[in-house]
Design a protein around this nucleic acid. Structure first.
Lengths: 217, 217
DNA sequence: GTTTGTATCAAACGATCGTTTTAATGTCAA
DNA sequence: TTGACATTAAAACGATCGTTTGATACAAAC
């Protein structure tokens, strides 16, 4: 039992440190030695507990990324339910709030979106996991939610492009924060992040064309 | 003279192949051997002509990326000038057209945005180049252009966030095309790309708060 | 107390990395 | 034709990579 506990602790540390390093530097730029050193364990631990480096990477998604994504989606659903009927305004607000403030710490959120963007730009086996278990169901749910409240005659394709565009902004402002700061001079402090959420909600809402729609109701 | 020509040919090949591979796989996942093999030259050529691998990477940005970015900006300026006064509509149209259709081939555009996203997520020395010589001046120009025609009382920060949001979409739909196809099922054929431009123009325009919707269709 | 099985450890494996060295090749000026 | 120079070529450098091995520590089972 005590042995089992120790083993679990090592695995947890490995997953944590691996996720951070993979997110920060990318798969190829991180060595197994670097991970095991950060996790305070022996070099062979990765191969002992996970088989090989690539499987550790996949396990990071299985054991860390996907559960966190589910947490985000749960937070979104509750936030949306609290606002009553799912108008475009409510959806945009709940989305931005969940993904830019939400239940995650700053570090967690940064990690999460860095890993996502890496898989978006260069899909590996982990992308299948993310697409099947997280993205497709979530986007489908969003589409079902928005379809009845969007302008008439808006096709399925256009609906999906609207949803993807909101995510483009959310992803961008999360993963490119260093660059955004270097370009604009704005630091990602609490005040700026608040204005950022405000902006994304407003921009998304207008983009969805939901402002007039809501006024009509 | 004939020697000089041969040397130039080798350098050009190296820059071309290096850019393609760096864009596709990222700096660390590409080996010097892989590059020189693709460029049909000797392994030592990289160190002879560029000093080392990192300097080849930087030279890719100096000799390829930045000039292409200037080409895009020039295309944007001409496209905008052809539409008369720089209304939000005209700016959104010219931006989407330049960056999603524009003067570049599909492969070039893909490369261009892949390299950009890599630097955005994990800035290296090349980012300074890109930020100083391309991004900051271009964003400043856009801001100067849009400021007089945007709604009253819109602060500088909000103006910049609007511009960044448009670029977020442009970047996203360019670099995440594999993922977008895998998620939505839509192939990036000519018809889809046309609808994509249409969508981004419309979404951006609404997001900017541009009123002139009738100009769109 | 001995055996069994799990987890960790140091050490080494072969492969590949970026880079350097040294020799060969080709070209132009003198 | 010869010497100087620029480019290419093959081979090797030391370092680091992911992975494997065999020994060791230690708690639980008998």
């Amino acid at each position: 039992m005590a042995q089992k506990d120790k083993s679990d602790v090592t695995k947890e540390h490995l997953l944590n440190e691996a996720e951070g390093l993979f997110a920060q530097k990318g798969y190829n730029a991180v060595s197994v030695r670097e991970i095991t050193k950060a996790a305070n364990c022996n070099l062979a631990a990765v191969n002992y507990h996970f088989g090989n480096k690539q499987n550790l990477y996949l396990e990071v998604f299985r054991a860390r990324w996907v559960p966190r994504a589910r947490l985000l989606q749960e937070h979104f659903r509750k936030s949306l339910a609290a606002q009553g009927s799912p108008s475009p305004t409510a959806v945009a607000k709940a989305l931005a709030e969940a993904f830019l403030v939400g239940p995650l710490s700053d570090k967690e959120r940064h990690r999460h979106h860095q890993l996502m963007v890496r898989e978006l730009g260069q899909p590996t086996e982990a992308f299948e996991l993310v697409a099947d278990q997280v993205m497709r169901p979530f986007f489908k749910g969003l589409a079902d939610m928005l379809r009845p409240v969007m302008p008439e005659g808006l096709g399925e394709e256009r609906l999906m492009l609207n949803i993807l565009s909101i995510f483009a902004m959310v992803l961008y402002f999360n993963f490119a924060r260093v660059a955004v700061t270097r370009i604009t001079g704005y630091e990602y402090d609490t005040a700026f992040k608040a204005r950022l959420v405000e902006h994304i909600v407003e921009f998304s809402l207008k983009g969805l064309g939901g402002a007039e729609k809501e006024e009509l109701r």
